[in-house]
Design a protein around this nucleic acid. Structure first.
Lengths: 125, 125
DNA sequence: GGGCGCATACTAATTAATTAGTATTAACGA
DNA sequence: TCGTTAATACTAATTAATTAGTATGCGCCC
């Protein structure tokens, strides 16, 4: 039996990303966005958005013609909890090995390195 | 319908962690380890280990009395792919925001900071 | 040999999320 | 008003992983 996910699942996150990007959206708007990338039924989007609402991630507001769905929490907050859950699950709560992993991977620009250096220099920030 | 997971699911990861820790294990050994932490049936462990075998994460070897399961890939390799999948999924492939997230969280010791500084200083490592 | 415990193979049920169709109502434009 | 499109409510089916039981075979010890 499938355990409940503490954090956003794959599809839930896809939908939330669309809505976070625009700030608020109707089912139709999310559907139009997603269908540019893949085949999905309008009613699938509708269902998922209602699931997200019932889970407390979205709030419904009356719109001109269609209900508008608004995120309950900012993206950063939600992503933060997802990062925490990932670190707990995969690294037993310690961020250090994850940081080491990421820094050892090529892909950071010089500017990004500088920025990260700054963050590392700040004590207790 | 549940999409297939590209990476280890929650329970799969729990089992793999036990086996990575010991290097190889029988169903019984994994079962004894897990049951110290939670209620689970021996046959549940058995099933999951066979699932992991069929998925290519474990290899069966004949043992003295019980078959021994051996990881096919080292933990680091598997964890690396899980990190990649996470970054792709949550951060659209860019490690930078995840690094910023992690560095802004309190929790790193001075020694850890020093270590990370070193990694940042290394060009193209 | 027999009883008991363990290992293995097989089978079945459950779950949450995912996918999407149908029916009905509402809105819009001619 | 009517026809068409869109929105909403509701319903149903599917999926992969998870949980675990049953039946049988094997090993050990008395």
């Amino acid at each position: 039996m499938r355990p409940k996910s503490d954090t956003l699942t794959g599809q839930e996150l896809e939908l939330m990303k669309v809505i976070w990007r625009t700030g608020r959206a109707t089912v139709r708007e999310v559907y139009e966005d997603l269908k540019t990338r893949r085949t999905i039924a309008y009613t699938s989007v509708q269902t998922m958005m209602n699931v997200l609402e019932s889970k407390g991630h979205l709030r419904k507001e009356p719109g001109d013609r269609a209900q508008t769905y608004v995120p309950v929490r900012p993206q950063q907050t939600v992503v933060r909890s997802m990062v925490r859950e990932f670190v707990d699950r995969v690294f037993d709560g310690s961020a250090r090995p994850l940081l080491v992993h990421l820094l050892k991977e090529k892909g950071l620009t010089a500017a990004e390195r500088k920025e990260l250096q700054k963050l590392l220099d700040k004590e207790g920030e």
